[in-house]
Structure formats: C-alpha cells, structure tokens
Design a protein around this nucleic acid. Sequence first.
DNA 1: CGCCAAAATTGATCTGGGTCAATCGGCTTT
DNA 2: AAAGCCGATTGACCCAGATCAATTTTGGCG
Lengths: 237, 237
Amino acid sequence: MKPSLVTIGPNGHFCSDCAVRESAVCSSLDAVELREFEHLGRRVRLGSGETVFSEEDISTSFYNLLEGVMRLYKLLPDGRRQIVGFALPGDFLGMNVSGRHNFSADAIGAVTVCQFAKTPFGRFIEDRAHLLRRINELAIRELDHARDHMVLLGRRSADEKVAAFLLGWRERSFALKGRSDTVPLPMSRQDIADYLGLTIETVSRTFTKLERHGVIEIIHGGIRLLDPARVEALAAA
Amino acid sequence: MKPSLVTIGPNGHFCSDCAVRESAVCSSLDAVELREFEHLGRRVRLGSGETVFSEEDISTSFYNLLEGVMRLYKLLPDGRRQIVGFALPGDFLGMNVSGRHNFSADAIGAVTVCQFAKTPFGRFIEDRAHLLRRINELAIRELDHARDHMVLLGRRSADEKVAAFLLGWRERSFALKGRSDTVPLPMSRQDIADYLGLTIETVSRTFTKLERHGVIEIIHGGIRLLDPARVEALAAA
DNA sequence: CGCCAAAATTGATCTGGGTCAATCGGCTTT
DNA sequence: AAAGCCGATTGACCCAGATCAATTTTGGCG
C-alpha cells in the first residue's frame, strides 16, 4: 500500500509526555536537550498496511516508533519474503551505512512514528556522545536479536520455531501491556510464517497441534498459553 | 580447544604499521591518538581451533582481528550449531549490551588479534565521538549482513545458499587477496553447512553437482568459479 | 442480516534436503 | 610404504515441511 503520511505538526505534542520518552533513543536526553529535540521530529500517523519506507529507497529520515507494530522485511526478486523483525514502540529505524534502506517497513494496524530528517538529526547528535552511545546500544541489541534469529532460522524445527516465537513475542509484549499468558498477535499468519521461514500452512497446523495437545488456546487476535512450561520446553530443546 | 594465549607484548609492534590500520576501528584515529591507542591493545596469537571467547562468558575485552579467519557461532543445548558469521582481518569483536558474549568465537587456522581490556578502551572512547561513530558504523554494517543472512537462511534453497555463499566469500576475500575467480575456503565443509543451515552432505553434494555442470571446480583449499555468471544467476533467482 | 472477500484451517500428496551408512582420499606417523 | 585418521564424498532411503487444493471462518459493509 502506498503511503499517505498524515502529519500532526510539531505543535500538537510534547516529547516530555511522549509514551516512549523513557525507552526510546530519547531516554538518553535531559530535559533541556529534549526541548531542542522536540523541534527536530514530527509526528506521523499511518494506516494499516501503509509503507513507511522501502528497501533500496534513499534514506532521508530516521523514525522512532511511538505506537503500533511494524513489520520489517526483505523481498527476493521472485516475491519470496523474509520478515527480519517486528518493530514495537520505542524502536528506532532508519540507520544504515549505504544511504539506502536495507529493508522495507510497513504498518501492521494503525501506527504513529516520530520522523526525523537525517541532516538536522545528525547535527544534533554530533556533539552528544550519550545519544550516540544510546543509538549504538540499540544497534547492538538489534544485532543480538538478529543472531538469535539466525539460529532459529537455520537450526530449529517448525515446532521449536513456533514455540520460540510465542515466547519471544510474549516477552516483548510485557514491556507494553504487562505480564500475561495471553499473547496478542497483531500480525497475520503469513507474517508469522515469513518471520519463521515457514509456510502459512505449517504455522496454522502447528498452532492447531499445540491446541489439540492442550498447550495453547487459539483465541481471537492472539494465543493463550495454557501451559507455558511446555511451550518453553518445546522452544528450548 | 582451550585457549593458550600467546602475548607479543606492547613493544613488539606498532599500530602505525599494522596491517588493518586503514580498515579496522583504528581507521578513525589520527597519528597522535594512535600513539596512545597503541598502549591499550596487546597482540595475541592463537593456534588453529583455539577459542577466543565463548557464549555466556563475561566479556572483559574487545578484539580487533589482525590476521586469519575466525568462526562466530551459537550452540543449541543439544549440540546443533549455527555459525552466525566469519570474521576477517579488520573485524571488531566483543560488543554487547549484557556484559556477556552472545556468541562463541574460535580460530580457523592461525590467528592474530589485538586485544583491548574493556575499561581502558571505554575510557579512551569516551570523549572521542569519531571512534564511537566508527564502531557504530561497524555494528550497523554487521546488522545489514545479519539481515541478508536471515533471508538466506529462511527463504533460499540449498543451491541458492551455496552459490550466494561462494559469491559473498569471494567478495570478502577481494579485500585481502585481490580480485580473483578462485575462492579460498579456509573453513571446513561442516563450517559451511552450519553457516548455511544445511548438512555437510548437502553442501558436498551441491559442490559436486555444480562441478559436474561445469560451473565450478573444486580445488584444494577452495573453489574456482569457472562460470561466475552462472553462479550469480543461481544465487539471485 | 446477508453477501462478499480475505484469512485461516484442513486434507492429500509430493519432494528437497536430512539421515544413516559406506567408502574414498589425503595427511601424518612410524 | 603401510597404517591410521579425519574430512569429504557418495549412495540409499526417509520424513518434515512444502505444495496443491478445498473448505471453513472471519470481518467488513450495504
């Protein structure tokens, strides 16, 4: 879907009461810096399925995800897709060395991002090592996750992939909605399949199998973990 | 294999005539800084198969690879292994957020690294934004590669994986030994398999098949690309 | 509510790559 | 040069997960 970016102007909000104030890149800024920072970003809303940026596009902005979920993916020429990650509020997107995006990003459901033009953002960062360190920390965290995911993609069975996915997603959801055994799944089965390197049929069958065995319950918009320990055992083995 | 680190003392070398002076993290340092930097690192040699650090170890040092090749990998409890990357001269290892290594690294053949204790290195970096930026750049480059590799692991066939591996490795070898259609492969078939998410048998069969088709020639210690265009076609599709 | 389209599930069948099991071949050791 | 070893290759067979093909369920909308 093509983008129809709706700006909310720099006046319609304040960084100081932003939902991700404490978790995003901004967490490294003090109150004074935040004031200046406020003028660099503009809030943008996107509808479900809209694309924020595409692979190979020249990257002109950084994005700070404020609300919603995004899928980050790469496509092969023949249409095969690999989702390289899901972004949640507080995630920082748009870093690259080539000047072009190395993956595409689109909204799963409604999304709000804070968009920063690269040049002023780069200037702001320049003499603020703490912000740079914070960005570096986020990149390294991302790298960690990427390596874990390589293990999953290269060496785990379908059952293990699905179980690990449920646990991983539950973990990330905690930060937003608090601890719970109900895992909300805003993305489609196809998205899950493309994230795990499986087909949609295998994902569906695996969920059904786990439900038959009383390990999970498939509910509207998510999965309830009836027996979290069994899920963990499946994911670990 | 257990490490038997052999130090070459800070006196036995100079950063200024280091092989990776221009490509490693050090490329961001000027002549004056280099003098100080010199005292932070110590050269360490490792024999074939020796482990530099293991996953879950508390990380106390950073490493700058000077000579040789290393495999970086993660193990599952049951022994399955995923190689998350190969390190070449100029690569910088040891960054993490948790204080523990998130993968293991060992030498493929003889290796020389430049080891930096974390604390003094961190102090040196502190007020040098250009070094921090350089490290950030290396992390982002790594992240790029990791995402490409996820696509390979999750969505490509065995033939495509092997072809893409040969091209990728050839590309990296260029930086060291110059452009050539002979791809040196210092790692074992098992290493290649664990990098590509395949078995050793499949890697071997794929090589043999490509050779039968006149696309490559299997030579001692590597592969010669007889028909690079065909290899590229295989990798792309 | 009833209609339509998209998403998800389920079933039947197929196959790429894994598993198991011999060799093979190149080095090292003696 | 014979023996032993370890990595690599090859062959025969198998199976997890893909593919193909219907349904079934869900969600949006007049």
